[in-house]
Amino acid sequence: MSDIVYRRPPALNMIIWSLVMVWVVAASFPFLWTLWGSFKVQGDFFSKADWTNAITGVRTQVETGGAFTGNGYFGAWVTKSFWIAAINTGIIVFSVVIISLTLGTLGGYALARSGKRYAFYLLMLALVFRAMPHITLVSGYLLPFFEWNLWGHIPTAIIVMVAINQPFTLWMLHSFFLNIPKDLDESAMVDGCTRFQAFRHVIVPVMWPGVVTTGLFSFLLAYNDFSVTATLLSQANQTMVPKIASFLGTTQTEGNVMFAVAAVVSATAPLFILILFFQRQIVSGLTAGAVKG
């Protein structure tokens, strides 16, 4: 049935298909190109003579003897100690996700079940907080953090990012909890559970799909952050993204931009794997806030 309804004239189909084709190329080509180029030497990836050198790898052949080279990766990970930044990112992101979700599930559940006027005001307040540019908040932290010697430490960055993620986490989990029927926890309470027991024994077992999705987005927010990690962490505790930013200045002058290219590819790989496994959750998460309310 729907086939007949939605059948299009061929000309329109052509336009739509070419549009999608153009988009697919625009979305994927930059990544493929950079991945390919990261195994070349700088003379090929930024070729003065001819950009096709990056494909054939002429200079790479001359300089290293093979068509591909891992020099960029060696330089970034070993020479420039990118691995320390990777470990720091791991610690920070993991803690941010766990703490955000713990606070967020409790708060989101309360907001979804309250039904009072002030719950709605809190949600609106969270929306306003969500709109604050992160860098304005960071400029408010710096001076007090310097004074109280909190600046530069990993736990500081973690708690700040948890707070910045809270408005979003609350909204998302709130809309997930609205979809879990009220009768579930209310019947548990009729049976004599306290509110927290009902939450613990009845809601927790069924909330995981929503929590996983929200966790993915907390992960992305923490992993992709630049303004907080670049300004609140000391050199030794730096994470991957500010590390890459600092590569830019140093490598340009030393002539090893390929370190930065390799680091960029390395930092993108986990995100790539994330979409590979969690595509469905990401899509449902993006639409949860919008479609359900």
Binding site: G107, G140, Q166
Partner: peptide, 26 residues
């Protein structure tokens, strides 16, 4: 109200400390 308060408290504290206060500090 009481239960609501305890459930929302941790989340609210982090937001007040690290979003509302920084605005004042700014």
């Amino acid at each position: 109200n009481r239960t609501f308060f305890w459930f929302i408290l941790p989340s609210l504290i982090t937001m007040l400390l690290f979003i509302a206060l920084p605005i004042v500090s700014v």
